[in-house]
Amino acid sequence: MIEVYRGSPNAWECDEMGHMNVRFYISKLIEGLGVFCFKTGMPHAFRPNAPSTVELKDLHIRFVKEAHAGAPIYMRAGVVEIKESSALLYMQLNHLDGAPCAVFRLWIDHIDIHTGKPFLWSPKTIAAFKTIPADMPEKLAPRSLPFDVPPNPAPTIDAALEIGALEIGSGLIMPDHCDVFGNMKTECFIGRISDSTPHFIDAEGTGLSRSPKAHASGPRIGTAALEYRFAFHNTPTAGDIFQLFAGSAGFSDKTFSLYYWLMDPYRNTAFATVQATLIQFDLDERKAITPPAGAFEAIEKVIPRGMWL
């Protein structure tokens, strides 16, 4: 594996949970992907005049150990599988002592900028890929969200409405949320979810909270992510409107799983479908806690089941 990123979280990249917000894990992943491309024969992949680039199609994230403001972190990357115009990569974000912070498994497509279609890797890039096999510790494998099952086709908004999914977010894709190609940055997908989650986590009757309440007595409790999986179907561009729907995917002892559909109301299809596994988190003890009795059942009254990845 090769090193593709070295830095640290800024204070403004950390949220009310006291650790780096999920969107900046992906921001650093994309930085690392750019360096990976540079080191494997694609030095112009993320420049405005690039003849080709790479796009994420399927992404699994497992969060392992929190990253805090100013703490040094670095990322290594390797290749798991190579196909004609796509590849499966493994990227691991570590703390300075080598302890894993987060791990990423991602399918990427090699995209022709002019046609927007996948096309063959160059022989030079394939040769480079073969020199950097991924070292994937079994203990860091996906747990609650498997990565070996392909996503379903993109749903429609009609499907969301039929299920009774709750709309938790909406807005406009702004130009500063987009990359050099005019497409919404990958971190903004998860950023929109993070921004919208309080609209059902904090709903009356669930007994849960996304973030600690001001002047609340007792322990400070928030919600933290353990795993995410993203399937990217269509790419939003500046000026697009989006709607975000949520539904329950079930729960266990301490964890609960949710689906999110980031939808394109103009074309009646999905930009992305997402599944997440979350926990309630004691912000002072920095550990998972058991939610109040009946909390998960209350969530399913707010965001019913029926959605999918």
Results as ranks from 00 to 15, higher is better:
Ile2Arg: 12
Glu3Pro: 05
Ser8Ala: 15
Cys14Gly: 09
Glu16Thr: 14
Gly18Thr: 08
Met20Val: 08
Met20Thr: 08
Phe24Trp: 13
Tyr25Trp: 12
Tyr25Asn: 07
Lys28His: 13
Leu29Gly: 01
Ile30Thr: 14
Leu33Thr: 10
Leu33Asn: 03
Val35Leu: 07
Val35His: 05
Phe38Ala: 09
Gly41Arg: 03
Pro43Met: 10
His44Cys: 06
Arg47Glu: 15
Ser52His: 12
Lys57Tyr: 06
Asp58Ile: 01
Ile61Glu: 04
Val64Met: 05
Glu66Gly: 13
Glu66Lys: 09
Ala67Gly: 13
Gly70Ser: 05
Gly70Val: 05
Met75Cys: 12
Ala77Arg: 04
Ala77Ser: 15
Val80Trp: 00
Lys83Ser: 09
Ser85Cys: 10
Ala87Leu: 04
Leu93Trp: 02
Asn94Lys: 10
Leu96Met: 11
Asp97Phe: 06
Gly98Tyr: 04
Gly98Thr: 10
Ala99Thr: 15
Pro100His: 01
Pro100Asn: 05
Cys101Met: 10
Cys101Ser: 15
Ala102His: 04
Ala102Gly: 09
Val103His: 00
Phe104Cys: 02
Arg105Ile: 04
Trp107Leu: 01
His110Ala: 05
Ile111Lys: 06
Gly116Glu: 07
Gly116Leu: 07
Lys117Thr: 03
Pro118Cys: 04
Pro118Ile: 02
Phe119His: 15
Thr125Glu: 07
Phe129Tyr: 13
Lys130Pro: 02
Ile132Phe: 05
Pro133Phe: 04
Met136Tyr: 02
Met136Ile: 12
Arg143Leu: 14
Ser144Pro: 00
Pro151Gly: 09
Pro153Trp: 07
Pro153Ser: 04
Pro155Asp: 11
Leu161Gln: 15
Glu162Asp: 15
Ile163His: 06
Gly164Gln: 10
Ala165Ile: 02
Leu172Asp: 09
Ile173Ser: 03
Asp176Asn: 15
Val180Ser: 13
Asn183Ile: 00
Lys185Asp: 10
Lys185Met: 12
Thr186Trp: 01
Phe189Thr: 06
Phe189Gln: 05
Gly191Ser: 11
Ile193Tyr: 05
Ser194His: 13
Ser194Pro: 00
Ser196Val: 12
Thr197Glu: 14
His199Tyr: 10
Phe200Leu: 04
Asp202Lys: 03
Glu204Lys: 11
Thr206Cys: 06
Gly207Arg: 02
Ser209Ile: 03
Ser209Trp: 02
Ser217Lys: 14
Gly218Cys: 08
Arg220Gly: 00
Arg220Asp: 12
Ile221Gly: 11
Ile221Lys: 09
Gly222Lys: 06
Thr223Tyr: 03
Ala224Trp: 09
Ala225Lys: 00
Leu226Pro: 00
Leu226Glu: 11
Glu227Gly: 04
Tyr228Gln: 06
Phe232Gln: 04
Gly239Ala: 09
Ile241Tyr: 05
Phe245Val: 10
Ser248Asp: 01
Ala249Met: 04
Ala249Gly: 07
Gly250Glu: 06
Ser252Met: 02
Asp253His: 11
Thr255His: 09
Phe256Ser: 04
Ser257Pro: 00
Ser257Gly: 12
Ser257Leu: 06
Leu258Asp: 05
Pro265Ile: 10
Tyr266Asn: 14
Tyr266Trp: 07
Asn268Leu: 08
Asn268Cys: 10
Phe271Asn: 07
Ala272Trp: 04
Thr273Trp: 10
Val274Cys: 13
Gln275Ala: 13
Leu278Gln: 13
Ile279Val: 15
Phe281Met: 14
Leu283Tyr: 04
Glu285Asn: 12
Lys287Gly: 11
Pro292Phe: 02
Glu300Cys: 02
Val302Glu: 03
Pro304Asp: 09
Arg305Ile: 02
Gly306Glu: 08
Trp308Tyr: 15
